[in-house]
Design a protein around this nucleic acid. Sequence first.
DNA 1: TACTCGATCGGA
DNA 2: CCGATCGAGTAA
Length: 186
Amino acid sequence: MGRIVKAKLLRARNTVALARWLLGKHLVRRGADGSLEARLITEVEAYHGERDLACHARAGRTRRTSVMYGPGGHWYVYLCYGVHEMLNLVTGPRDWPAAILIRSVEGIGGPGRLTRNLDIDRKLNGKPAQRKSGLWIEDRGGRVPRGALRATPRIGVAYAGPVWSKKPWRFTYDPAALSGGRADYP
DNA sequence: TACTCGATCGGA
DNA sequence: CCGATCGAGTAA
């Protein structure tokens, strides 16, 4: 078992740094039958504030984005293309709209597949990323070596314009390069 | 109330 | 390459 990541940590303002930090942590899901599934987080993207034209909060505070304006440490789950549920972790202090899209975990590539495989949907929207919600993040000591980290532009955000669509705020790494901390299932 | 389009995916 | 599928956001 690992340390459950505390909300306080996620209230830091630098979402981009938090996104990098999230790599190598475990996403843990409790199933309806009580079973646990823990998977290494392998791909994330940072969405940072109203100025970030790729961020849903670019339109300001709306019903959908209100969760992002809350304190860090809660889930933001929304429906994409009318088909896929997207899982995001809200970051930053209250009134600073930001979140990290969890795009892939080890063995499940793609944000839509991830939620389908782990039975995640909008019922989790606004819930804290803690044990009581059935979905949380654990630090099991794994660390991503600097050399294994990759930063690239975010996926599918061309509409955000040349500046914001090119920000290298998508982070990935090769899980084989992880040092320590691997634990498949609790 | 009408219209457009999207932080995707799987099958042609 | 394209259709699925639906709700948010915007304009009116």
